[in-house]
Design a protein around this nucleic acid. Structure first.
Lengths: 347, 347
DNA sequence: CTGTTAGCGCGTTCAT
DNA sequence: ATGAACGCGCTAACAG
């Protein structure tokens, strides 16, 4: 008799069973104070009437949305797609949903993202700070409203929030050391914009690795580009006359551009110039020669970021301990572009 | 005096100004029946008290969430990342937010995604059907609840909903024709799972192109794989003894695997075997030789899918015209892997 | 164990 | 032009 309506509510079910709406609510939520009989009856009716709980009403009542807002520069970038994958996976497991917003590396859009999420009453925000962003006031707003914030990849210590980042310094250090171990001595570096912390850390790792191994840092072997294939090509053209025997590029696209220049100059990789990148972009494995690089564990980054969020969520008594900062240790992936014979010495 | 609370409500503003909550609501929403004076006063107070409208309450009241649910197999796949990019861009422009759910190509998760979105009361769902999905009942549920559904990439005509897809048939036809124009005659095809419409269409395009050009279809030159690098490698091993002079692979990863096998066999590309893929994956451009392929306009696909959603949303009187199906025409990208000299004839 | 009541915050009546 | 009252659907508090 109870024809399923377009939108069944607990009241519909209550009427169909001659009970109170509260009883239906209790039954559906497995409240302890409910008889087995009615609980079963209610659940049966709910299924029969094709009931779907209205999460909006529930959220309003409970004061939490079970939604995480995620701010990324762009979903088009593989790196962030992977992170999203990790975040959504963990969120889903915890019965949370993921709302995404792209900043396009723009400060204004990032501010708008935070505002939107505030209005949507998300239970937390995971974000990767846009390259353009310098003023961090909008993120501070979140703290003011008691909305947990977790940063990933592009973090900022001054915000004093949990974060999960890659150890860029160590990755760069290890990458450079790897080149040294291969017998290279004139190791060049193509860097990125130095106001981006990640890129600056990579430069530092490179310099320290040289120092530790008693190799003089030669400023002529360090150039700065704009982190793209074209920029990598140009930078490498400037470097070739200085005859480096290896290159540590700030990331894979830059490395790819550099490789193109090296090959066009008739030099062999790694025989004449070894090269290593950073990020383990999907394509790096399939280049010729395949490109050595530094793996950043992107999916894991997403998982850990979501994990940190649930951590603060579950102990809302947030003790006054400094926020956790998770540092993922990158791993060197050695491929053909640095695979020199053992104890190889250049002519 | 009015210290901004953690969560300011319209009632707080109303009290601060000695007006009714309804007045505040009207002022904030630019209702016509409101005096300029009070409207300005309310807006000023709202800003001062750092008011953020509670979208949850508003959604409950209005019966719409201004949220689009998007179901994708995985955010880790570049293709879907790009589509998400397009979707979010258009959604954002229309003051809508995007909730994402990954099916991981699993039927059960896809069902759960629909259920979650139903409970979240999203205003619409954009989805790409998982490879595993055969039963489409959960999507039909959406229609039952009057939730607009738009499919992208992986569509299904039986659902009778708007969709935006790539013209796989034409892309495959053109790719095959391209190989023919390059002088190839023994053109093999490495296909995918044939229950996936897209893959089946590509097979059909391949066959028809051969027919149109009076080249006999040779069943020995058609093999089916599982759409991966490894599968591409294996399939190509089976094909080599049959001496094809070209390969049309169902997508780029398969093509990549095939290329590896060809090169390992000491054959040259495209001299001995030309090859073309499908999808224009980021890496395809950087392979050696660079891989010819078919570009699918992924970002545009997302934009168009979102566009179709807003189209049905704005004329809810959904006239009884058949749902719109947008077919994006793919474009051949000719790179080194098929770049044979003009009028080249094989030995 | 179950029913009644109330309220989350907002927007839309229907008055005035 | 403004206010009072109501209800969207759900759940927690209090009775019984």
């Amino acid at each position: 008799m109870s024809e399923p309506a377009i939108r069944t509510t607990i009241l519909d079910i209550a009427r169909a069973l001659n009970v109170a709406a509260a009883t239906v609510s209790r039954a559906l939520n497995d409240h302890p104070a409910i008889s087995n009989a009615t609980r079963e009856a209610v659940k049966e009716a709910a299924k029969r009437m094709n009931y779907q709980p209205n999460k909006i009403a529930s959220s309003l009542r409970l004061g939490k949305s079970k939604i995480i807002g995620v701010i990324i520069p762009s979903a088009e970038i593989n790196f962030f797609g992977s992170v999203i994958h990790g975040i959504e996976k963990v969120a889903s497991k915890n019965d949370y949903n993921v709302l995404i917003y792209q900043s396009n590396e723009l400060y204004e859009l990032e501010k708008k993202a935070v505002q939107t999420f505030l209005r949507s009453r998300v239970d937390g925000v995971l974000a990767s700070i846009s390259k353009e962003t310098i003023n961090l006031g909008h993120y501070a707003d979140l703290k003011g409203k008691n909305v947990p914030l977790v940063l990933f990849d592009r973090a900022n210590d001054s915000l004093q929030v949990p974060a999960v980042v890659v150890n860029d310094y160590q990755g760069a250090f290890n990458a450079t050391r790897h080149l040294i171990e291969q017998g290279c001595r004139r190791i060049a570096h193509i860097g990125g914009q130095q106001h981006v912390t990640n890129f600056n850390q990579r430069l530092r790792g490179y310099i320290d690795a040289l120092n530790v191994h008693n190799i003089a840092v030669d400023d002529d072997l360090i150039v700065y580009g704009k982190v793209s294939i074209g920029s990598g090509r140009e930078c490498m053209k400037g470097l070739l006359p200085r005859q480096p025997d290896a290159v540590f590029a700030v990331e894979d696209f830059t490395a790819l551009g550099a490789m193109q220049t090296i090959k066009e100059a008739g030099l062999s990789i790694p025989g004449d110039v070894a090269i290593i990148g950073f990020a383990n972009e999907l394509f790096s494995e399939y280049l010729t020669p395949s490109l050595s690089t530094v793996n950043q564990q992107t999916v894991r980054m997403g998982e850990e970021a979501a994990g940190l969020f649930f951590e603060v969520l579950n102990k809302k008594v947030s003790s006054r301990v400094p926020p956790r900062k998770l540092i993922l240790e990158p791993e060197i992936i050695c491929r053909q572009s640095t695979a020199l014979p053992a104890n190889y010495r250049r002519p």
